[in-house]
Design a protein around this nucleic acid. Sequence first.
DNA 1: CAAGCCAAGTTTAACGTTACACACTCGGGC
DNA 2: GCCCGAGTGTGTAACGTTAAACTTGGCTTG
Lengths: 348, 348
Amino acid sequence: MPRETPGSARPGWRPSLKDVATLAGVSVMTVSNVVRGAPNVSAATRERVLDVIERVGYVPNSSARNLRAGRSGVVSFAIPAIDNSYFAELARLMMDEAAALGRTVLIEQTKGDRELERRALTGYGPTPTDGLVFFPQALDGAQVSQYAAGRPLVLLGDRGGQGPGDVVTVDNEGGAREAVAHLLATGRRRVAAVGDPRGPGTENSHRRLAGYRAALRQAGLPFDAGLVPAVASYTRAQGEAAAGALLDGGQPPDAVFAFNDMLAVGAVHAALSRGLRVPEDVAVAGFDGTDEARYCNPPLTTVAPDKRGIAREAMRMLGDRITRGDETPYRTVRMGHQLLVRRSTVGR
Amino acid sequence: MPRETPGSARPGWRPSLKDVATLAGVSVMTVSNVVRGAPNVSAATRERVLDVIERVGYVPNSSARNLRAGRSGVVSFAIPAIDNSYFAELARLMMDEAAALGRTVLIEQTKGDRELERRALTGYGPTPTDGLVFFPQALDGAQVSQYAAGRPLVLLGDRGGQGPGDVVTVDNEGGAREAVAHLLATGRRRVAAVGDPRGPGTENSHRRLAGYRAALRQAGLPFDAGLVPAVASYTRAQGEAAAGALLDGGQPPDAVFAFNDMLAVGAVHAALSRGLRVPEDVAVAGFDGTDEARYCNPPLTTVAPDKRGIAREAMRMLGDRITRGDETPYRTVRMGHQLLVRRSTVGR
DNA sequence: CAAGCCAAGTTTAACGTTACACACTCGGGC
DNA sequence: GCCCGAGTGTGTAACGTTAAACTTGGCTTG
């Protein structure tokens, strides 16, 4: 299916408006009008131009368009890792919501790296983006604020008070408290918390840890630092390692609350591979409400944020900032969550 | 952290080279030279310019750069769904490999939709891309060839003979055959194949089905269409439904070979939730070698393609087409795979 | 000491697109 | 017969960046 080429046909060559115009015997503007569906083009002319476009395989050059328009219609979704089921599902929803608003999503992996997070925030990089939805991990509020500097920004995850952008979050502390309270209600007394990322870490982790402590307090149980191991990342492997170490210890827990579903899946695996029964010997609960947790064996009890709601609100707020150049004070939206009780904590 | 703004400070305003130049008292080209690290700038001048850049928060406009350069450094990775663990893992690797080559990856979800696949191929859309790595699902070779028309293209997955672009694949038929042969070798006699997407579907599925049939043939077993249900998508839910229906039938299988890990996870879930034991009552094997399969309970036997190799080769070949305008005949690279035997087929 | 050369800049002209202002040609109303 | 407006279409300038050609002045070199 060879394409016609008015000029020299260099390898990567693509026809421009000008080429189409020449071939169709009209001006560049008329072709542009046809392409954009603008008025003031007769049916006959339109037909002729469309023929040529079809014939030479013209596709508008989005770089030129973006330059002209001053915006690209692309928003970045900056997350630690796309192969974390929660982020994969969230990414899918973000793309859906963005598409509904006529935007495209560019996924950027920050891997919890300061420099990569900085780059995502500043908008450095080969793709022009109009703003971003950002899940911070390495950077604190002040740094985020400094680097983003005026770019439309929506932050995912808890923030104490005013953030450097709009915030969409769930009640991390409440969700964690409910999950742990549920574990305690089923008679567990040594509940481990897996996911504390020592040091600054994400605000989310701190909230979930706070929820854990609150649940213990309400039940009149002491906080035991020995039941709260550090993890290097929120992966299945780290969950297995951390839970495994606890289970191999002198005073193993009778329940594990993992700060996300990846860790929880790892914890379940650690228990089962040691011949322990879940939930009889050790109950496991997670956070994220991923599909993976649902299909885990046993199915995983988990705190499920309203992911679609998060995606919808994030894209809506970001869109407002972009199109309206919205200068109103930053808002925080807290989406709902649900404790999905499954067999990993209550058995059959 | 307010930024200095020479002109009027409209909401979405960002400083350009010109603004920096004015403020620094040099020409635009000098600023450009500083930014790009080009020579012929004195240390003093460089210093002064960098100061201003820092002060006003200048970030290069990539639309203008891309327009000027005629390419964007962005490649698209078009897949059916990012929340399929295999694609999520592959996406991560693609991004890593691309970054090593100085490129960025834009993930596009086609959802097995003809129109979305067409858009990905033509490069329509707000983001300029230099080419794409494409996992076809709805479109056949001729259509792919027509729509891509000269764009650098790497196809993922089996193709009979010459494709409309470079091809990176694994031995789907061989992998499937090995997996099924393994099931048969453990004494299974009624092996179901879950994943046949009736109609055209992906070439991969057909190859895996061919491998399944080949293994049966080698073992002298008849092909039973009743053991090969259709699925609507390669998801956990479809795997559960398809396997569930088989297990609830009059002549349930004693093993299930699922065409990907998502389906396999669903199949395991279907079996366990019916009180069946895996692998004692029904063995389950998958395809993809995802991390999720490894952490499944019981851990899932799966055919693991060399995903990193796939990502590396795909990006390398695509890069060659882009930078060298490579016009050599299309090549096909077949990456290795490994049958990872785990407890879902052999027990303890 | 003229010729040449180098470093440190500047000027110019694109890349492809589109907003805006302008031009032309018909019919029809007065 | 002249003007007006609607319907079509064209020309110009600008978006921000950079390759390439050009300028300037100081310094080496034969």
